[in-house]
Design a binder for these strands. Structure first.
Length: 316
DNA sequence: GGCCAGGCTAGCA
DNA sequence: TGCTAGCATGGC
């Protein structure tokens, strides 16, 4: 990826814009479609498909700043850039641009994924429909962990409502080009909340405990995301599931959506099980064990195989 | 009105 | 180790 301050255009009026080298194919329209439908109830991301960009806050250099991720080119020759307010210090802009590149999966080699599973007719059909679709990651592991816990056992729509309520309660709001932009709260802000404050937002008692207690674990150092990043998938699974409220599925989601790990298979995920049932034409819903067995063939791309199957639900 | 939702824990065998 | 009731609420 390219995200160096040396390549940034800079003036006092124009936004600072840093190009992001993005591996083809990439189809931004599929990203806008997906998040308009399933992922955008929480107003943490402002989609602007007509301008081929989305805007969200990114923490960099100890502050949160609005970053517009802009797309250009076409599916087979995509371009992207991260635009941030004029006057952003170059080292902050460079860090934010790196986060933006990570978020859109700039380095992900979809061609290799497609080649790996091209012999499977079920996937070949999905690849036709979804060519150039990449995961949109969370730029901040803590935000991802919170969203994952909140989403446990809830439909995505209601989960999005709860995520947004938490952001309104404990987060900040930036102004960007005349629009308010919600900033997801940091760990300190969530750790200060009481369970009752979340109960008042329609969190269950247990979910309120998981959310606040996990934030407190981050604040007191029991959960260190910089350390988690260095762990293998299996090590992270072993360590993080020691924390109350974080099971296998939640660690898998963290590794997928925060770190972009390529080979996670959330076999217990109800959406994945439904998708496999549909795409494989099964009479009954497969168990997690079934998914583990079926998905073994998707290595080393089990994350993206899962993502494309999730997307198959949206296209159905 | 009932079932389901991109699960997890605690208790039990 | 493996299984299951209970959790709690909104969406459909």
């Amino acid at each position: 990826m390219t995200a160096s301050p040396a390549s940034a255009a800079f003036s006092s009026d124009e936004p600072m814009r840093i190009p992001i080298a993005i591996a083809p194919p990439y189809d931004a329209r599929l990203l806008f479609e997906r998040y308009a439908q399933v992922g955008n109830r929480a107003r943490l991301v402002r989609l602007e498909p007509e301008r081929r960009r989305f805007v969200r806050a990114i923490r960099a250099g100890g502050t949160a700043l609005p970053v517009a991720v802009e797309f250009g080119g076409d599916v087979e020759a995509p371009t992207a850039a991260a635009a941030m307010p004029a006057g952003t210090p170059p080292h902050v802009a460079a860090e934010a641009a790196r986060a933006a590149a990570h978020m859109i999966g700039a380095d992900v080699d979809l061609a290799a994924f497609y080649a790996c599973l091209s012999d499977d007719a079920r996937f070949a059909a999905l690849f036709d429909r979804l060519r150039g679709s990449k995961l949109l990651l969370d730029p901040d592991p803590f935000e991802c962990m919170m969203k994952t816990i909140i989403t446990q056992q809830l439909n995505l729509s209601f989960a999005g409502t709860l995520i947004e309520r938490l952001a309104v309660l404990a987060g900040d709001t930036l102004e960007h080009e005349g629009h308010p932009l919600l900033v997801f709260p940091d760990a300190e802000s969530v750790a200060r909340l009481s369970y009752d404050e979340l109960r008042a937002l329609s969190f269950s008692q247990r979910k309120a405990e998981y959310v606040v207690d996990t934030a407190r674990a981050v604040v007191d150092g029991r959960l260190d995301f910089a350390r988690v990043e260095r762990l293998s998938d299996d090590e992270a699974l072993r360590e993080l599931t020691q924390l109350r409220g974080i099971g296998r599925w939640s660690v898998e989601c963290l590794l997928i959506f925060a770190y972009g790990r390529p080979d996670l298979l959330p076999a217990a995920d109800i959406g994945l099980r439904n998708a496999v049932r549909n795409v494989w034409g099964l009479d009954a819903q497969p168990t997690a064990k079934d998914i583990d067995a079926i998905g073994a063939a998707w290595t080393p791309w089990r994350t993206y195989a899962t993502y494309y199957l999730w997307e198959s639900l949206r296209l159905k």
